[in-house]
């Protein structure tokens, strides 16, 4: 069963995302959490995660720097990354995709929007 890494500097947002996924019927076995890009990089490389959800604006290492670092490392290139962020606009979405993100969801989001976005990467019960 899939393991999902949630990288967000807000513990509340990590809980909301986790709860929404659990209630959505998407199949997830375990959640791993990180509070910034640097911690996210450690967790992504030391855990066998199947999907990464990543905020953009965070202390220490931003989400976009995390994506560039993970993709640039040559490791875990097959793990899909979905940016979940308040950063909207075409240029940001383009930048994220060009850096190696596979999906993009802007906050605030409804549970249905999250399910629809993650449904591309996770199976439904």
């Amino acid at each position: 069963m899939p393991k999902v890494l949630i990288i967000d500097d807000s513990a509340v947002m990590r809980k909301i995302i986790q709860r929404n996924i659990q209630q959505s019927g998407l199949l997830v076995d375990e959640f791993v959490e990180a509070g910034d890009g640097r911690e996210g990089l450690e967790k992504a490389t030391s855990n066998n995660v199947d999907l990464i959800l990543c905020d953009w604006n965070m202390p220490n290492m931003t989400g976009i720097d995390f994506v560039k670092a993970l993709r640039g490392s040559g490791q875990k290139n097959n793990i899909p990354i979905v940016m979940v962020t308040t950063e909207g606009g075409e240029s940001k979405i383009e930048e994220a995709k060009n850096s190696g993100a596979n999906g993009y969801l802007t906050k605030p989001f409804t549970p249905d929007q999250l399910k629809s976005k993650l449904g591309n990467f996770l199976l439904v019960k």
Binding site: S10, A11, N57, T85, E87, G88, G89, T106, K107, P108
Partner: peptide, 25 residues
């Protein structure tokens, strides 16, 4: 608790983020 402060921060962040997207355009 810290969760309450965190939630207020996220609310502020989401309002500002949305405003920023509109301003950027």
């Amino acid at each position: 608790t810290n969760d309450v402060k965190d939630a207020v921060g996220e609310v502020s962040n989401m309002i500002a983020g949305n405003v920023k997207t509109k301003l950027t355009a």
